[in-house]
Design a binder for these strands. Sequence first.
DNA 1: GTCGTGTAGTTGATGGCTCAACTACCTTCC
DNA 2: GGAAGGTAGTTGAGCCATCAACTACACGAC
Lengths: 168, 168
Amino acid sequence: MTNEDEVRWLDADQQDIWRSYLEGTARFVEALESIHAAELPLSLGEYGLLVKLSEQPDRTLRMSALADGLVVSRSRLSHTVARMEERGLVYRCAASGDRRGVNCRLTDAGYAALVDAAPGHVRAVRRLMVDVLEPEEFEVLGRVMAKVAAAGRAATEATGTPKGRTDC
Amino acid sequence: MTNEDEVRWLDADQQDIWRSYLEGTARFVEALESIHAAELPLSLGEYGLLVKLSEQPDRTLRMSALADGLVVSRSRLSHTVARMEERGLVYRCAASGDRRGVNCRLTDAGYAALVDAAPGHVRAVRRLMVDVLEPEEFEVLGRVMAKVAAAGRAATEATGTPKGRTDC
DNA sequence: GTCGTGTAGTTGATGGCTCAACTACCTTCC
DNA sequence: GGAAGGTAGTTGAGCCATCAACTACACGAC
């Protein structure tokens, strides 16, 4: 399984690309998170959570769906939502139908924070990514990362315990 | 500054691309980290650190250079290296020339761990990214992320306190 | 020389994340 | 109907990252 003879190493060009990817993602999130921390009322993670909620019909989503959508563990989401609930950004209530379920709902204050943060967020995303690329480059990036997302999803479902799953 | 009239929002296509990017990076690191945790003797972060060291002439690098190369704060690197030092993977010693400086050096055990982890790491990177893309797609990804890296670097240097800097 | 400022790195307190364990509920099957 | 196993979500302990403060050294100006 760890037999070295079978390994197809990356050639020099592939290594360069790989390192560009690693550095690019690292610098990008570093810059975006620091803009959120310095100028906006929500961290990048909180912003993403509120965006997801705001897109739902009743600004409401099941905890599990939210965790899957944000690609975080259920445990982490529980803790995060608990903190955001204390700040009045969201609140939890029982889900109808399945008595195990819990809904997470965006409050008016949460929506207001989202509206407040959105312009700065979009400006930052443009400055750090969208506007530094040619339109075609940006499009390819989207196609490419959709493929990568699918591969990751497949790998996570197939083998290891995804995130915070007790089953298997 | 947060005047909404001036904001150039993303159109529907751009939003799709942006979300593909977010989900792709999230699922990718999730899968890669879980492979490291389950099958390899080093976490993804530790692996990256040892790779950087192994590329240096004497398998040695200044702490500050290491922090910059890995895009992490000096504080975080200090803690991480302290833990890895306890495991015998690296060790620190005074740098020559500048008496403030500290060198981080790869031990034989650290190199052995790297050699041990490398095949599984490369296999995972291929399965999760390189091999799911057309060669041209992968090349574009490299070009694109190099641009993004540059933009992030510029933003971080220009404005906010980068990571763990006390100056400014 | 020493004052001021900048750089290198560490440290400890705080807060968030992870992991495993747990409750509670649903579903299936006999 | 009840036993077994799956799903939904939470909790607390321990680990890791972050932040601000700190030591120590370097360098330039006067």
